[in-house]
Design a protein around this nucleic acid. Structure first.
Length: 270
DNA sequence: ACTATGTCCTGCGAGC
DNA sequence: TGCTCGCAGGACATAG
């Protein structure tokens, strides 16, 4: 489900709602699948901690923890939502959704629930988490250029590689490439400097606008308040196979690159 | 070191 | 109505 704009939206709504709240108890589902750290370690790290901040790093949600007396702790709870994960703040009376894998009881009386049908999401605790790639909204153009200059892989695959850029997923890769007028199968190393300039700018514009609109709700994505995003209304190629290009009316094509569907306009994108 | 492919899961809609 | 198939916002392991 979630790429950078969706994760940013979720992190902001969580920060607004549960910053300062204290984790009183932790329940983790019996299937250990979604746990990257041992269940006992996660429970022990979260227990009795105050959530000082919630923020995004790449596609990860980072909960900064402190001891309930306010002493900051290096420990962080890291949640990766995979394809279908969601974090919901709700009252204790609300019936838990199927595929609820973790429930945190908060001192305010509310619960923070992690729900994930496909179980591609991951929970872990770690000290001083750092996402591997660069933040696309932070990296300067020189750094952006250096990431791709020597890669022979298609630019679409390079954009999805989280150790290069952190946070770009399938929707925003396609949308940025359309706006930069670059075909997804082009080898990254074949892109001229001005093409990479367009791509860098297009990616930043697309991500910023998507954050402003609360992300893309393609099937069932909602933020921690249950609110939908609206960027899906601005998609120009993603999910528009065979529909007319909004610029030139040519039918949008769908191809598969690295196992992921990729959408582009064969006329606008070179 | 880089690149391509398969696999992990459940659920939904299309087509028969 | 009920089935089978293909597809889905992601990231790893593995093989070349």
């Amino acid at each position: 489900m979630p790429e950078l704009p969706e994760v940013e939206t979720i992190a902001r709504s969580l920060a607004k709602r549960i910053s300062g709240d204290v984790i009183e108890s932790v329940w983790l589902g019996s299937k250990p699948e979604p746990l990257k750290s041992p269940a006992a370690e996660i429970a022990a790290t979260l227990q009795a901690k105050r959530i000082s901040t919630v923020r995004r790093a790449g596609k990860h949600i980072v909960f900064d923890l402190e001891s309930a007396r306010g002493v900051s702790s290096p420990a962080q709870w890291i949640v990766h939502l995979g394809m279908t994960g969601s974090l919901l703040v709700c009252g204790p009376g609300v019936e838990p959704a199927t595929h609820t894998h973790a429930v945190l009881q908060l001192a305010s009386g509310r619960e923070l629930r992690f729900v994930d049908p496909r179980r591609f999401g991951r929970l872990s605790v770690i000290e001083n988490f750092k996402a591997p790639g660069s933040e696309p909204l932070q990296i300067a153009f020189d750094g952006f250029l250096a990431l791709f200059r020597k890669r022979k892989t298609p630019i679409k695959s390079a954009l999805l590689n989280q150790s290069l850029l952190s946070g770009v997923g399938n929707i925003y890769a396609d949308e940025a490439l359309f706006r930069a007028r670059i075909r997804p199968r082009r080898r990254a190393s074949s892109l001229a400097r001005d093409e990479l300039r367009r791509l860098h700018n297009a990616l930043k514009r697309v991500l910023r606008e998507a954050i402003r609109l609360g992300g893309s709700s393609v099937s069932d994505y909602v933020d921690a308040d249950g609110a939908e995003g609206f960027f899906q209304l601005k998609h120009r190629v993603y999910g528009r196979e065979e529909k007319p290009c909004l610029v030139c009316k040519t039918a949008i094509k769908r191809i598969v690159i690295a196992g992921r569907s990729s959408h582009y306009c064969p006329r606008c994108q070179k």
